[in-house]
């Protein structure tokens, strides 16, 4: 890492460059398990944003007093705090959603994204950078979950339910494909989206390097 990182970059890198699902391929359990609709993806993402930002700030604030040898257990304890907060809040205010997300909410405590960001970023960076990193990565992850959830929901049920706004269209447009709501549908959607994103990134990189170098080929 050269020089001082810009705060803006710490925030924006979570969307494409270090996209948790499609670039780093971490946090895959909830990605495949709960993305059967946009709404599920959204609330799972919100839970992760909260936990990730909270734990990043805690880990970063305590990084100078955390002994290196036992840092992972300390991370887990620090992460467990916001996870319990999220779990109790969801149980209290969104009981239906908690029933759907089920075990994947408490399991955020061992979600790869959280531990990876603690280890790779928050443990080595100041509090403000870690806060922005948590927000950025978390929001990127939420968008991923919502896109996957939206595709699976549309193909699997023939319509999309947008919170309390109701479903669009009101009746399924076609005979829904049951497979998209089960795990094979999750894997197919994830793989295809990853392929599309890789193509787009490769193209934009090729364009960038073509602009810099005259003869690259």
């Amino acid at each position: 890492m050269n020089g001082k990182r810009s705060l803006l970059h710490d925030f924006t890198k979570g969307f494409i460059e270090e996209n948790a699902t499609f670039r780093m391929v971490i946090g895959m359990c909830p990605t495949l398990a709960v993305t059967t609709s946009i709404v599920n993806g959204f609330w799972m993402g919100v839970a992760v944003i909260f936990v990730l930002t909270f734990s990043n700030v805690l880990v970063s604030a305590l990084r100078k007093v955390t002994p290196d040898q036992i840092r992972i257990p300390i991370f887990v304890i620090l992460i467990a705090t916001p996870v319990v907060i999220v779990e109790l809040m969801m149980k209290a205010f969104l009981p239906d959603m908690y029933r759907i997300l089920g075990v994947f909410v408490p399991l955020i405590v061992v979600n790869c994204i959280i531990i990876a960001r603690s280890e790779a970023f928050a443990y080595r960076n100041p509090v403000l950078n870690s806060l922005l990193d948590g927000l950025g990565i978390g929001m990127g992850y939420t968008i991923n979950l919502m896109v996957i959830g939206g595709i699976r929901e549309f193909l699997g049920t023939g319509k999309i339910v947008l919170f309390s706004l109701g479903s669009f269209p009101a009746k399924p447009l076609f005979d829904p494909m049951a497979v998209m709501l089960s795990s094979p549908g999750g894997f197919i959607t994830l793989g295809l989206l990853m392929a599309v994103l890789n193509i787009l990134i490769k193209r934009s990189e090729a364009r960038k390097s073509a602009g810099q170098q005259v003869c690259h080929d």
Binding site: V179, P184, G185
Partner: peptide, 9 residues
């Protein structure tokens, strides 16, 4: 895929 997508069909 079809067996999983539209089992009834």
């Amino acid at each position: 895929f079809l067996m999983a997508a539209w089992p009834l069909q």
